[in-house]
Design a protein around this nucleic acid. Structure first.
Length: 774
RNA sequence: GGGCGGUUAGCUCAGCGGUAGAGCACUGCUUUCACACGGCAGGGGUCAGUGGUUCGAAACCACUACCGCCCACCA
């Protein structure tokens, strides 16, 4: 054995060996233990968050794979993996590639464009799975799935159709969050509210009869072109005489009424609010209450539409704002301009300001008591939302740490209907068809849709152009990956997985997707399988950099976990970190920081040390600040363990010196033919042999205590305590004391003591290796 | 406006009722037969503040001060 631990070759050799020998497929015959991998985006690369999360999952999986259940059987252990098609993100990457060629997706057409995305997916999809292999993730790759593969797409269609037929999916013309750059609807969750410095403008709307009228306050003056009323509080003495009177809407020549609605806050602004139902969520509701139809004055790309006065048509919304303000000023109607902080809705994907837009979309009903189509039957609240709350209330799904239950509950209790349609091309196309009269036909295919039709189609059918939200297929992941729907013969083998592995044991994921994913999986899985998707949800912390800053490419503070494993020199690191930074000043700053922070680049620590570091950092906290120095410490620990093994083998590898152990290094063999090397022996140090010396008795007692602690800490997901217990035992007790105490014993004339000590050294080492590197 | 966290050694964090712990950093000594990615010895904290409960509080309760995150329609 080498004097120092050189992980690289050893790790790669053994991973390949395990994978090729099917060691990652379920082989036990006892209770099932299953974890679903949160599917990474196909186009992505592994970041520290993935590496951290996957380390936890892999630790749990390997622990159960080798561990005996209380009844003496071995767990049937499955880590179900795969990747996500990531609709918007992937489409954007390919569109950017096209843009570099001076083309848009429309130049290619839908079919050609999708073909092109598939090509890109094939090319980039394996990147992340290979990175996972390098991290040692023991995913059962023979069961790898993709959210757009045939089986999962069939599941998506089935779910859509069943929900539709149950009256839970409906199509409607509603105000939705619209991304004018991507030209698609996005869900509430995909919108961030950012506080920005803006202005509050006060504008006079003169009375139609020539009176003073009222002054309204607004942060979006351009939308006045679509105003249909001005609202005041019903008990506001200042305006009570005006209620019901008409005002002259400046710049348009239209007349609009003053209405009373107690939504209005008398204290804010002037106490009078302009009402623009087509472009504001609140105004939409007020409009509905007062039966005032919307006036759409923006086009889908956020320019002023033909509904507005000719002068402004075709102007971008922000240009129009300036123009409107200038015109009001000229008319003497702009009363006041005040600085004002406001929440601006911004698209997570494009940073574009979101525009509430009136469009036809598909929604999943999550709020109604009864069916939205008026037929008898439960609505979404009863059929979908409440069961999801119920299983958590009853403890059938448990959050760890449990305070996340509150977050989950509060969101579900205040949930809105889910807009599931997206105006994109990459994704699951909506299985709905329209005839020339606008009738809707839904089915798994066109024939099925017609077979279930209640009206005769008028003219030709045309399939819906839109695709489903990426999270729609993600919501089905717990059962779609395991073979659901299982009636089809080609999925028979997977159907067996469904019966065995659903519900899975634990979901390991970040709190940032409790709403996007966790809650939706619970809802969908309960609805379609009557089972919970998983019994526990371990919410892992979010990985930040050493200063607690969020890691992001635009800050240049991301670390590639593989660079920690294999090391990277300074110049390459600088190049990599600044590659996507376009602003020269930012580039310079990032480069300077990196050269200061990593003057010698990053030294390789190996996969085991990185993973041990993650385990040691995995407390119940919600963020972890990743400090490279921590990894160095655990790299040293790996070396310590390596040398302990070296000491034991040097002293014990003599004929007749107790159980033989294979060299686990790069040159080692896998074990004798027919005798799998996997560690299936139950270790009971106390009964392994009769210890002779007091030192042996002591270390064996300490070993069994440590292993018991490890078991407890695994059961409560305290990976930091698992790591700490093993670290302290290995270093402070085994190495510092027992190995030292064994030296005189090994060299003494007392053969029985020497022999027994050798045995104990092997027993402890074997137990440690199994615990630390299952 | 609601909800959830955090404040412990220079740094990153455990501890959550019994007289302060880990890793890294620091100081001194040490290169002999597992390991200098090592060994031995050591320095360093009024556990954010105030009040309370208790024989005893970093830990439990209340309030305060900072810091952070999530949700929410104040134009």
């Amino acid at each position: 054995m080498e004097k120092t631990f050189e992980p690289r070759d050893i790790e790669q050799k053994w991973y390949a060996h395990w994978e090729s020998h099917g060691d990652f497929s379920p082989s036990g015959d006892g209770e099932p233990y299953c974890i679903l991998l949160p599917p990474p985006n196909v186009t992505g690369t592994l970041h520290m968050g993935h590496a951290f999360q996957q380390t936890i999952m892999d630790a749990l999986i390997r622990y159960h794979r080798m561990r005996l259940a209380p009844d003496g059987t071995r767990y049937r252990t499955l880590w179900q993996g795969g990747t996500d098609h990531a609709g918007i993100a992937t489409q954007k990457i390919v569109e950017n590639q096209l843009a570099a060629e001076g083309k848009s997706r429309h130049d290619l057409g839908r079919a050609k464009f999708i073909e092109r995305v598939w090509e890109w997916k094939e090319q980039s999809g394996s990147t992340i799975t290979n990175q996972m292999r390098r991290l040692g993730a023991s995913v059962d790759w023979s069961r790898e799935r993709f959210t757009m593969d045939e089986g999962l797409s069939a599941a998506v269609r089935r779910v859509f159709v069943e929900w539709y037929r149950a009256g839970l999916l409906y199509r409607g013309r509603r105000l939705v969050n619209w991304d004018p750059v991507l030209m698609t609807a996005v869900s509430d969750l995909e919108v961030n509210n950012e506080e920005k410095d803006g202005s509050l403008w006060s504008i006079r709307y003169p009375a139609a009869d020539g009176g003073e009228g009222v002054v309204v306050a607004t942060t979006r003056p351009e939308t006045m072109l679509g105003d249909v009323a001005v609202a005041v509080h019903p008990e506001d003495a200042r305006y009570s005489s005006l209620i019901g009177k008409m005002l002259k809407l400046p710049l348009t020549g239209r007349e609009i009424p003053v209405i009373a609605d107690d939504y209005v806050d008398r204290e804010f602004g002037t106490g009078a609010v302009k009402i623009t139902p087509a472009h504001d969520f609140n105004d939409w509701q007020i409009g509905t209450r007062h039966k005032l139809g919307p006036r759409v004055i923006l086009t889908l790309d956020a320019k002023i539409s033909d509904e507005a006065p000719e002068k402004y048509r075709g102007m971008d919304r922000f240009v129009a704002r300036k123009s409107v303000l200038a015109d009001l000023e000229a008319l003497g109607l702009l009363v006041e301009t005040k600085k004002h902080k406001l929440q601006v809705p911004v698209s997570q994907r494009t940073d574009a300001v979101i525009e509430p837009m009136l469009t036809d979309q598909w929604f999943l009903d999550l709020t109604s008591e009864t069916r939205v189509d008026g037929k008898p039957g439960p609505g979404g609240r009863k059929a979908i939302t409440e069961p999801a709350l119920d299983v958590v209330r009853k403890g059938e799904v448990k959050f760890v740490p449990e305070n996340w239950t509150t977050t989950y509950n509060q969101w579900l209790e205040n949930i809105q209907d889910w807009c599931v349609s997206r105006q994109l091309w990459w994704g699951h196309r909506i299985p709905a068809w329209y005839d020339e009269a606008g009738n809707i036909f839904v089915g798994e295919d066109e024939a099925d849709a017609l077979a279930h039709a209640t009206t005769k189609p008028v003219g030709a059918l045309r399939q819906d152009e839109d695709v489903l939200d990426t999270w729609f297929s993600s919501a089905l992941w717990p059962f779609s990956t395991l073979g659901w729907p299982g009636e089809t013969s080609e999925r028979a083998a997977e159907w067996n997985d469904f019966n065995v592995f659903l519900p899975s044991s634990v979901l390991v994921t970040g709190f940032d997707i409790i709403f996007f994913w966790v809650a939706r999986m619970v809802m969908a899985t309960l609805y379609f399988t009557k089972r919970v998707p998983f019994r526990e949800v371990y919410i892992n912390a979010i990985v930040r950099d050493a200063e607690g800053q969020k890691m992001s490419k635009s800050k240049g503070n991301t670390i590639d976990p593989l660079d920690l494993i294999d090391g990277i020199d300074l110049d390459s690191l600088v190049k990599k970190s600044t590659a996507s930074l376009l602003i020269p000043q930012v580039r310079e700053k990032v480069e300077k920081r990196i050269r200061k922070e990593y003057p010698n680049g990053i030294a390789p620590v190996g996969t085991d040390a990185l993973r041990f570091t993650f385990a040691a950092l995995a407390t119940y906290g919600r963020t972890i600040n990743f400090d490279l120095k921590r990894a160095d410490g655990y790299r040293n620990f790996c070396n310590k363990l390596w040398n302990a093994a070296r000491f034991v083998l040097m002293n014990c590898e003599k004929p007749g010196s107790g159980p033989r152990r294979q060299d686990a290094g790069a040159n080692g063999e896998a074990g004798p033919e027919g005798e799998p090397r996997t560690r299936r022996v139950v270790l009971d140090p106390a009964s392994a042999h009769a210890p002779v010396t007091d030192a042996e008795k002591w270390i064996l007692t300490r070993l069994s205590q440590t292993l018991a602690d490890v078991e407890t800490h695994f059961a409560t997901y305290r990976f930091d305590l698992v790591a700490q217990a093993l670290y302290e035992f290995t270093w402070n007790e085994f190495c510092d004391w027992f190995v030292e105490l064994s030296k005189p014993a090994l060299n003494s004339d007392d053969d029985a003591a020497a022999e027994s000590t050798r045995h104990t050294l092997l027993v402890v080492l074997e137990a440690l290796l199994r615990a630390l590197h299952p």
